[in-house]
Each structure stands twice: as C-alpha cells, then as structure tokens.
C-alpha cells in the first residue's frame, strides 16, 4: 500500500553565512513511514532534518531558499507560525536533553506551554506519553525524581515521550543513538518501529545497519546534496550510484 506524501521538499538550498551547506535538494517523505537519512559526517543530513521544523532559524546567519511542504503547505511561507509548526513536527536530539526538572515536569512541559493546566489531563498525558515511549514501567513509581538521574538511554526515551506529549504528526530523530550503548540503542530502535504506526518519522543516522533495520525509505547525502533516494532495500541491495555503493560497503565515510 502506497501512502501519501506527508512532506515534500523542493529545491532546498541552505547557506551558513557564505558557505553553502545544502544544494538543490528534492525529496518526498511518506506518511507513517520511517525515512532514514545517511551519509558521512558533515554531509548536511542533520542540517537538512533541522530545516523540517525550522530549528535552523535559531542560528544566526542562516539563509534558506526553496520550499518544504507539510501537507501541501509551505512551512517557509511568511504567514507560517513557527511555534505551531514545531508542535506538529517534533524533534529528538543527538544527545538526550531532558530539562533539569522532574520526570513528570519534563513530559508535562509541552502540554503546559500549549495551555493545558488541568492536573488530571496532565497526568493522563504524562502516562500515555511514557507508555508510548516504553518508559512507563521503569519510572512510574518515581515521576517526581530529577530527570537527570536517569540513565542515558532512559533519558533519550524520556525525550521521545516529551515530544509525544505534544501530539506531533512528524518526529525528527537527529542521530538519536549516537550517545547510547548497544542495549539502549536496541530499545530505541524497537520503539521507532512501534511509533511508525502512528507517526511520520525521519531519522538521521551515521549507522547504516540502523538505517537498514528501522527504515522504509533511505536517502544518501553527500556534500550537502541528496544523491540517491529510494526504498531502503533497494538502496542497500542495489544502489544506483557508485558513491552510495562505496559508502554502504564501507569504502569511505
């Protein structure tokens, strides 16, 4: 079954001051599928994914041309509310970044800033989100403890739960496992597999096995350009470009 395009990227260019970091990128991301972006470090895959929820707006001197359509609406249009956009497109970062507050307050942060004050609703959202992130069983008896006391893998799942709590449509993962050990990594991968039933997922990774394990589609970035894109199986088993083949067979990277 072919699902519809959730995100369509058209002719996307990005400059940091004078340096061009992304060049003429075009890409379709399917709804409720996992799209993996791979490539050597510095190839622009993280920069690319940060365009989808406009996190690059926070950096001085960034200039962007082209468009990114989310449900057919360009998120770079002047009338777009960035805050509302980021509520729809959540993000999980390379290093787990729970806020220095309790587990409960971390999860409740998003709902609270979006206006939910009622205690019972908050409690319900917190539980749902933690269940959704497969963390509930481990922390349900200590929601009041400081989130920084959790292990790295738990912290990362907490951050996933935190983004689930604002009920996003898309979740961007920016190398979510690069700071984690293999066991914690496995848990996150299982979780991503679960989450794809409800959410559109884009994951940036430098770990090719991970891309092969978790994704439906894979894009290969090199020097700021999306070089090849297709079904994950096709990319890994039958790459069309020589650079892609070199990269996935480990000849460079």
């Amino acid at each position: 079954m072919d699902s519809k395009n959730k995100i369509e990227v058209k002719d996307l260019n990005l400059w940091y001051a004078d340096k061009q970091a992304l060049k003429d990128n075009n890409l379709h991301i399917k709804e409720r599928k996992v799209t993996a972006l791979i490539g050597p470090s510095g190839c622009g895959k993280s920069t690319f994914v940060r365009c989808i929820n406009r996190m690059n707006d926070l950096i001085d001197g960034v200039r962007i041309t082209g468009s990114i359509l989310l449900d057919n609406k360009n998120i770079y249009d002047k009338d777009v509310d960035v805050v509302a956009l980021r509520k729809r497109v959540g993000m999980v970062f390379q290093r787990p970044n729970p806020f220095p507050m309790s587990i409960f307050d971390n999860i409740a942060y998003g709902p609270r800033i979006h206006g939910i004050k009622d205690k019972d609703s908050l409690r319900k959202i917190v539980e749902e989100s933690l269940v959704g992130a497969a963390l509930w069983d481990e922390v349900s008896d200590r929601l009041g403890t400081n989130a920084l006391d959790l292990s790295g893998g738990q912290q990362q799942r907490l951050c996933i739960a935190r983004s689930l709590a604002v009920k996003p449509e898309v979740i961007l993962f920016d190398e979510p496992c690069s700071a984690l050990d293999p066991i914690a990594t496995g848990k996150i991968e299982d979780l991503i597999h679960e989450l794809r039933k409800k959410y559109t997922i884009v994951i940036v990774t430098h770990n090719m096995q991970q891309a092969a394990r978790v994704s439906d589609f894979t894009g290969f970035f090199l020097l700021g350009k999306l070089l090849e894109f297709g079904k994950t199986r096709d990319i890994f088993e039958n790459p069309k470009k020589k650079e892609t083949e070199d990269y996935i067979t480990g000849r460079f990277g």
């Binding site: 996190m55 980021r86 970062f93 729970p98 806020f99 935190r162 983004s163 604002v166």
Partner: peptide
C-alpha cells in the same frame, strides 16, 4: 533547543 522543538 529541546524547548523550541516542543513548540515553545
């Protein structure tokens, strides 16, 4: 970044 990413 974590806060902005949640739509704050």
């Amino acid at each position: 970044e974590g806060s902005y990413a949640l739509g704050a």
